[in-house]
């Protein structure tokens, strides 16, 4: 029997029209607004210290902080050795993927793109030899990215040597930890445009995110917003105690302990006895000890150092 089935031609066309129109309004149209945004100096600083990608990538698949740039505080010129005004430089050693604004200058917005290319020579950056970047301002107070390897002859090795380990921040590796350890499930990075000004600081502006990936705003704020946390509290010692066991500095905190980020040894190379620490801490909690046990000072190459360097950059 030859049945004449309904084919739903009109329905499927309307379905395509409705879904297409919806995607046109919600994807195509906003892309003009978002694509025309000029990067602020905050976005430039952030993408230069955080690097190409902080979440999963083939350069750092396990989020262990591989191939990450370093942010250093320079007090002397790395070429001449002469003292100079303290300056932040962003060191991309050999093999470190270049930041998004350098790989795709369109992401910087039209003005910053032109300045960064013409004055900052960012197109001469090279992943295979390594590059040092700076955030610069021109005489009209417009910010741009400068490739200091091209303009000043700074090499990654020279800059790192001049700055020294105490002035080197592993903030990019720290941001990977922020993603890996799920800090953003509780600590948002988005002070809201309504009520957060006095407590958590200014909400971010339109151009503050260019080149950042992932933005990791967070959605479920079970803890204070930390976009500007280092402006409120810049004590590395407090951070160290707080990460090891938040209840040491804030008895009512529900934050997990991140003592496992210390790794096996402390700053002096001594093995950290976590079991002993926990036993003594429990005795302290039960009132059998007057003071809690000492928190071990972290080693220079420990993950917690990276995380604290990251937090210190949330200004």
């Amino acid at each position: 029997m030859n049945m004449n089935f309904r084919e739903y031609k009109l329905g499927s066309r309307f379905f395509a029209l409705a879904l297409g129109l919806s995607m046109c309004i919600t994807l195509f149209m906003p892309s003009f607004d978002i694509g025309s945004v000029n990067a602020t100096n905050i976005a430039m600083d952030k993408q230069l210290w955080a690097g190409h990608e902080s979440g999963f990538s083939l350069d750092d698949p396990l989020l262990l902080g591989w191939h990450k740039p370093l942010k250093v505080l320079l007090k002397a010129d790395p070429v001449s050795g002469q003292p100079m005004d303290a300056t932040y430089a962003y060191v991309y050693e050999k093999g470190t993927p270049l930041p998004n604004g350098v790989l795709h200058p369109d992401n910087l917005g039209s003005v910053a793109k032109r300045l960064s290319i013409d004055k900052g020579h960012i197109l001469e950056s090279n992943k295979n030899t390594g590059t040092v970047f700076l955030v610069k301002m021109d005489d009209q107070k417009r910010y741009y990215i400068e490739n200091a390897s091209a303009t000043l002859g700074w090499t990654p090795e020279g800059v790192l040597k001049t700055a020294g380990d105490e002035n080197t921040q592993h903030a990019a590796a720290g941001k990977s930890l922020f993603v890996r350890e799920g800090c953003w499930w509780c600590h948002t990075l988005l002070p809201e445009q309504t009520q957060d000004w006095q407590v958590f600081g200014a909400p971010p502006m339109l151009g503050d995110f260019n080149g950042e990936s992932p933005t990791a705003f967070g959605s479920d704020r079970k803890a204070p917003d930390i976009l500007h946390v280092a402006s409120r509290n810049s004590s590395k010692e407090w951070m160290m105690l707080h990460f090891f066991n938040p209840r040491l500095v804030q008895p009512h905190s529900i934050m997990p302990r991140f003592d496992y980020l210390w790794g096996p040894v402390d700053a002096n190379g001594q093995k950290i006895d976590f079991a002993k620490w926990r036993t003594e801490y429990n005795e302290y909690r039960e009132g059998k000890r007057i003071t809690p046990p000492e928190v071990p000072t972290y080693a220079r190459n420990s993950e917690i150092r990276n995380l604290i360097d990251f937090v210190m950059n949330l200004k």
Binding site: I34, V37, E53, N107, F209, G211, E212, S213, T215
Partner: peptide, 12 residues
């Protein structure tokens, strides 16, 4: 395609 910034946040 490694889209970044607000584009990434919005598409998320």
């Amino acid at each position: 395609f490694h889209l970044t910034g607000l584009t990434e946040a919005y598409l998320t």
